[in-house]
Amino acid sequence: MDHPSFVHHAVLLSLALFGLGTLGVFLRRNVITVLMSIELMLNGANLAFVAFSRAAGTLDGQVLVFFVMVVAAAEAAVGLAIVIALHRHKDTLDIDAFNVMKG
């Protein structure tokens, strides 16, 4: 548990999760899956915070993770509500169907 390479590898894992999440945002067409990919990215960031907090020996990173979780919960609630509203209007969840707001 005190193995220092844990921190290094945890940071690399966090980058990998962030990258996978990003990829999901680009490749998937279902709005809900896109939202889940974003959750994946957030978890990657959270992992980095926890790892750096462990390395630095302070708790600020942990507090930040706490707030990220709160914001993620709020975001998920509002985001899913928007998804429901969109589905009601267009009867689809294809993200490319929602492109009315363009310049």
Partner: peptide, 13 residues
């Protein structure tokens, strides 16, 4: 990830 958090010494998270 929760397991990894635990291993990194953050039981609360």
């Amino acid at each position: 990830l929760s397991v990894i958090f635990g291993l990194l010494g953050s039981p609360f998270i």
